[in-house]
Computed example of a mutant assay.
Amino acid sequence: MASTPDNPRRGLPRVPGGEPWPPAGSGVPEAGAGEPAAPRAPLSVPRTVWPGAAASAVRERPAEPRRIGPYTPVQWLASIAVLGVFALALAGIAVLLARFVLALEPGQQFLAAFPGEYRLPEGAPVGIPAWLNWSHFLNSFFLLFIIRTGWQVRREKRPAAFWSPRGNKKRRISLALWFHQAIDILWIANGVVFVVLLFATGQWMRIVPTSWEVFPNALSAALQYVSLDWPTENGWVNYNSLQQLSYFAITFLAAPLAIVSGVRLSGVWPKDAEKLNRWYPIEWARRLHFPVMLFFVAFIVVHVGLVLATGALRNLNHMYAARGSVDPEAYASDPTGLLIFAASLLVMAVGWVAARPAVLVPIARLFGDVKQR
């Protein structure tokens, strides 16, 4: 039976042996199954607490920190600092270890047998000709923009403009990729001229190993560099064996790999050659092309550092002014090479600033159609 105010439903007693609750005649109905409990009157306690200004203030979300790639600038600086300390510690350990090895009697005997270079074949040319200076500058100039545009193509998400050949409007590439490939062509042309003149003039004997002694001498030169007791050298006459192997690798290994992988990734490669594409998948080229670029960057950093640290004026005279002598101290204070080197840096800086869409678009239109956003 449903409860009513006059006849409330009663439950169990509150105390053992007592009467059911609520007492009869109390007039307090009890909620039954499925019925809401009767509301209670609010307490008559005076209010003593009120919400402050902060309760109604509009709170702005903190601004997202600016990121460079996956990290913030502070995180990058902290990472670089930690890596720098770690690198300095490793370098210090390497120097101490190299000095220890060379101080031992076997190390001294090794240096006496292999001083860091070997005698070139009879008839090897002495000196660096002017054409090699020009080729060296052009190679540096083109590599600067190849690395810049290669990194831009890799990171670019919304190109500023697109280029299409006039004979094939369906093929469309970004302006940065067009500039990258155009500089590639100039770099390859300069490299072909360099290699032809290298073998025509006998200069190849300076960078192509002609004896198995190149390997122990290269190890000797490396130990001397690491120990900071650098080998006495005169690049006007002969490179040390570590230099020779490095120049050989960059000219005859890294450069061809960059060209072969770059051609595979470019529009020059035939898309419908199924057998050729199966023999040389595009994935191989992608995995090869970027590491080769990193190798070039590492070589440039080490090469420039050693040029400046092992006699900057003398080395720059060799490389930029074609001035040198069999005497390693000759031209050691001649500023000619330094001035030409400074002028070449100025040309590179001007080219770097000028390599923007406002300048590149008119040039690209000479060879195809350009569509800007």
Rank of each mutant, 00 (worst) to 15 (best):
P335W: 11
H303S: 02
S241T: 09
L96T: 07
G337P: 14
P129I: 08
L132K: 10
A31M: 05
P73W: 05
G235V: 08
A38E: 00
G311I: 02
V353C: 05
A332D: 07
Q108I: 06
G34V: 03
A309Y: 09
G191N: 13
I300M: 12
G107V: 06
Q152C: 02
F248Q: 04
L132Y: 14
V49D: 01
V268S: 15
S26T: 08
L366K: 06
A189N: 15
S44T: 07
E105H: 12
L253W: 05
L345D: 09
P51H: 01
V101M: 13
P22E: 09
N240I: 10
L306D: 09
A55R: 05
I183E: 02
S246C: 04
S135R: 04
R67A: 14
A258G: 07
T251M: 07
P115G: 03
R172C: 08
L228K: 13
W187N: 06
L186S: 13
G167N: 09
R286V: 09
W230V: 15
A124V: 12
R14N: 13
L245W: 11
L276D: 05
P328I: 05
G107C: 03
A87L: 09
P256R: 00
S333T: 15
R314C: 08
R47L: 08
G92A: 02
R278W: 06
A54R: 11
K275E: 03
L313M: 15
T336S: 12
S261L: 03
L219A: 14
G69R: 09
L198T: 07
S227C: 04
T48E: 07
A221P: 05
V268Y: 14
V226Y: 03
T310V: 09
L186W: 15
K275F: 04
L223Q: 04
Q152K: 13
V268G: 13
A91P: 01
S164W: 05
V353K: 09
A200T: 00
A364V: 07
F299A: 13
I188T: 15
P281I: 00
N317E: 07
D272I: 04
V237T: 11
L138C: 03
V268D: 11
V126D: 03
L306H: 09
A31Y: 06
L242W: 12
H136C: 01
E19F: 08
N168T: 05
V361C: 01
V359C: 04
W134N: 01
A343T: 02
V74K: 14
N133L: 00
Q203R: 08
R264C: 05
I146P: 00
I183D: 01
A343H: 04
L186G: 15
F114R: 05
D6K: 10
D327R: 02
E329A: 10
G52T: 06
R40T: 12
D184W: 11
A221Q: 14
W178Y: 07
V297P: 00
P216C: 11
P39Y: 00
I183A: 06
V15Y: 14
G127N: 02
G27Y: 00
A2S: 09
R9K: 06
G27R: 06
